[in-house]
């Protein structure tokens, strides 16, 4: 019968495993954020990080807070659902400047720039009476709902006997601006 004489190996193995475990715990402590797992399997403060992003797209209510007369002009009209931003750009800088101006009288609000014809990302404010803004929605496109008003400009202008059919602001001559009638 042979006695068990490999105790030294067991101690060495145990020490090795303990060292691995210790290193593992230290590494895990360094890598896992403190608030990890507090609300679920994620970094809890990430929710606040995402929520901290500023709201850039201005709701009509933001514009109407200062431009009350426009709100009254548009109330109940067919184009009430068209957002301020669709014709005037996103106005992010305008609103930010207006808020600064409300606190600091030395800040002045620059007037809105004329539209440069670019439909895409517009953070500043612009004014336009370009018919392209109307036709962006009202040009007949395959797929539109049947009851949505579609305009063929050439036909429409001829029907109405428009005096200046090529003028950019030709829509606004008859249909007005904020109080656009059908």
């Amino acid at each position: 019968m042979t006695s068990f004489n490999d105790t030294r190996h067991l101690w060495a193995l145990g020490a090795f495993l303990a060292a691995v475990g210790l290193v593992g715990m230290v590494v895990r402590r360094e890598l896992v954020p403190d608030d990890f797992g507090r609300q679920g399997p994620y970094r809890a403060s990430a929710l606040a990080d995402v929520a901290a992003r500023p709201s850039l797209f201005q709701a009509d209510a933001t514009c109407h807070a200062c431009h009350e007369e426009v709100q009254h002009e548009r109330a109940g009209k067919p184009h009430e659902a068209v957002r301020c931003a669709h014709c005037h750009g996103h106005g992010v800088e305008h609103v930010a400047t207006a808020r600064r101006a409300a606190e600091d009288p030395s800040v002045s609000l620059p007037p809105a720039a004329p539209w440069d014809g670019d439909f895409l990302t517009k953070l500043d404010l612009y004014v336009t009476k370009d018919r392209a803004t109307c036709l962006a929605c009202h040009t007949a496109v395959v797929g539109m709902p049947a009851d949505f008003k579609k305009i063929d400009v050439a036909v429409h202008l001829e029907e109405q006997g428009a005096s200046e059919p090529l003028a950019k602001d030709t829509c606004f001559e008859c249909h007005g601006g904020h109080d656009t009638a059908p």
Binding site: L56, L123, V141
Partner: peptide, 18 residues
Amino acid sequence: TTKCTGAGKCLTACRVEN
């Protein structure tokens, strides 16, 4: 889908916002 007119206003809004 019966109300969408394909004007693409939502697309620019999303791009600017995010």
